[in-house]
Amino acid sequence: MEDWRRIDIDVYYPESRISEEELKPYAKPVSLEEIQIKAQQIRSLLSKGSFIDALAYAIDEPPFGGDAQTKELHLKSVVDILTAVKQSEISSIVKQLTIDQQDILVKYLYKAMGSKIGQQQGGIILSWFDKTVEITGNGPIVRYISDRNTV
């Protein structure tokens, strides 16, 4: 009896059981190839030095519907952009983003903090996070936590 809080009582109500899939919003499937093409496009934008275009391009249509590998590849592209930008330019770039883009940016910052790729650039990610939230307020953080569309 002592462990009653851990009893899975939902198994007794199979018809009203909710699956993880049912909670997810519909997201268009994204293939690895599409993201590889995107990654190339981002690299060429970066080499031209147009950081804001590269960032907007990368986070405008994030691969919500991709598998883990696809998402990981796109994260790498985003981290490449973030590390290419000078510290002093972060604020002005964030200000130029739309509110939807800012939300996605914060999602990527959190994902980066939780992955190897991002942790190698920890200082840069933290300073992006600091400067972004200063401009956007708490909203994007709450949306990162509650939104079931994950990047």
Binding site: P25, S146, D147, R148, N149
Partner: peptide, 12 residues
């Protein structure tokens, strides 16, 4: 009768 059923992003 279900007259409307809307779903956004899964948050409460």
């Amino acid at each position: 009768t279900l007259c409307g059923d809307y779903f956004l992003n899964g948050s409460w």
